[in-house]
Design a protein around this nucleic acid. Sequence first.
DNA 1: CATGAATGAGTTTTCATTCAT
DNA 2: TATGAATGAAAACTCATTCAT
Lengths: 188, 188, 188, 188
Amino acid sequence: MEPIRRDALVQAAIAEIGAARSLDVSVSKIAKRAGMSSGLAHHYFGSKDQIFLAAAREILRDYQTTILAALKTARTPRARVEAIIAGSFEDACFEPAAVTAWMQFYANSQSNPDVQKLMRIYHQRLRSNLVFGLRPLVNGKAADVAETLAAMIDGFYIRQSLTADGLSNRQAVVLILQHLDQILRDPQ
Amino acid sequence: MEPIRRDALVQAAIAEIGAARSLDVSVSKIAKRAGMSSGLAHHYFGSKDQIFLAAAREILRDYQTTILAALKTARTPRARVEAIIAGSFEDACFEPAAVTAWMQFYANSQSNPDVQKLMRIYHQRLRSNLVFGLRPLVNGKAADVAETLAAMIDGFYIRQSLTADGLSNRQAVVLILQHLDQILRDPQ
Amino acid sequence: MEPIRRDALVQAAIAEIGAARSLDVSVSKIAKRAGMSSGLAHHYFGSKDQIFLAAAREILRDYQTTILAALKTARTPRARVEAIIAGSFEDACFEPAAVTAWMQFYANSQSNPDVQKLMRIYHQRLRSNLVFGLRPLVNGKAADVAETLAAMIDGFYIRQSLTADGLSNRQAVVLILQHLDQILRDPQ
Amino acid sequence: MEPIRRDALVQAAIAEIGAARSLDVSVSKIAKRAGMSSGLAHHYFGSKDQIFLAAAREILRDYQTTILAALKTARTPRARVEAIIAGSFEDACFEPAAVTAWMQFYANSQSNPDVQKLMRIYHQRLRSNLVFGLRPLVNGKAADVAETLAAMIDGFYIRQSLTADGLSNRQAVVLILQHLDQILRDPQ
DNA sequence: CATGAATGAGTTTTCATTCAT
DNA sequence: TATGAATGAAAACTCATTCAT
């Protein structure tokens, strides 16, 4: 029973955060959405922070899964890099609630060491995935190029959260790929 | 007296948010830091949300001021664009507390319409400043290039908030300027 | 099976109270220490209060057993009284957890009628045991002397619970026996 | 206002503990008895533990005051010792609620370091007050005699809390003074 | 203008107890 | 018997907000 309940709570937490567009959600609300009492939520997670931590972990796990799936079909280094970029904006995996929650956890990571640790892992992973693909393509510039691409990915991400009329995911991918094209044509 | 009190509260709010690395700060703490009672804080602002809103406005105003100062000395379109990029990372204007608060308000804007409005204005302004500089430099691509540059700026910004060992402001500027160089050399 | 389970719970309750140095222990913790579920604990005892009551009874029973054993070897009235005094501080019977629990139940007896009844029986028993031994030794003063001795026993007991650097059990016994000596030499 | 409120809360806490004959009383109840909201109680004391600590301190302070007043009129060493004994049972100072609370805090001191510190001070004070009076009276035996007298005082105290039909305060004083008489007549 | 006293609602958390299996 | 899932009540604590002074 425990894994079922825990999963229900994690999903409910993401949904609740998504609905409130903020981390100001109560355990009671989360538990109610998950169809159980707040007492049970505490029984399984011990504290609200642990529920949130599990939710953050889930979101990043989903992201990682999407990226890995995209990488599996990539045969060339360049395809790998493009897969990471495209995968990062694949809306199949990121329903709106998860995107909102991601943003909230990003901010929360500044004051919450556990969430920060999680976010740093995400950062590291994005960077190293990019570097691995870029190394054969750009001589000695892989680290810098990866850093720039990562910044573009995160940057488009958060800008989208603000601009209802903003760029679509697809446009973001197009612009990042244009940058990549240019780098690969002329690595300076 | 009123403007002095209001300003003290706004600065205290930013400092308090910076110290807590979160918006979970109480009006009492803010008021105490500003050297007055919580009652007076309410007297001047009506509510906590209004204090926060004023703080967000202040941060963006400071940013805008820095950018405008940088633009004033720029004589060519290219210099204008470079001024915006460099100005965005000038640490003279962004002390750590303001940077932290900016990130928190960014997240907060998702659930707070007033803050959202403010953030959208910032977005618009950054975009149009860039477009204005870029239009003479890139044929018809100004909007897209501006979008990409803005994403890079915001992206480097938030990534720095997570990576203690991350890129310095200076490195971020270098990388963005490299991208700009490349765009201007070969606008595709 | 039932008596084994009940006994395990009682021993676990005493141990848990000893570890917490307070009656603020949960049924779950007690049950876990006894190697069973909290549900089973309720099945056997009906309520937490009943578990506590059984624990208090157990502690007093152990005390009584020790005293009776000490009395069995006593051949003279004086030996009987000395046996009660020495037996009360025999650490063979009172492991630290039981001493702590005794103190907690002592306080608890003020608000819990069932525990109070138990404690009063202990009081009566101590008093009548002493009186029985003292009657042949002190003319008509047995009741008062017993009362004084009982107060000394309980008094040393609780003072030890506070003073880490306090008197040892042995010293307490020596001082009480000195008092007894004096009384018997000169019963006034 | 603060000292008035704090005092009201301390008195209410003692009264509430006395009424419940246990430390299981809620801050709300205490606050209500003191005529204010629970929020205000927290505002002034920070936590329930601090309220309790202040209550324990108050009880011991009252005790100390009574003892000091009794000592003031004592002209001889023996009168000093007798004043301490009689003062300890003077019901003018110890209304029932305080007696009950004292017993509860005694038990509580086992798990609460702050209360323990307080209780140890009380212990030390009782011991040293007695020793100071006894030294001129008993050669080199002052420490032991003081220890015994202190045990008798505490012992009669807690036994009274259990025995509705038990000894009165006056009888306790008589018995302790008899012991003192005997010691002083024949210090062994 | 200014204080800080005061409230009360809201949140997290704990647990005894019950009950379906 | 035995489990542990599940509840819900109760309590501590925090804070925005109000208001008398």
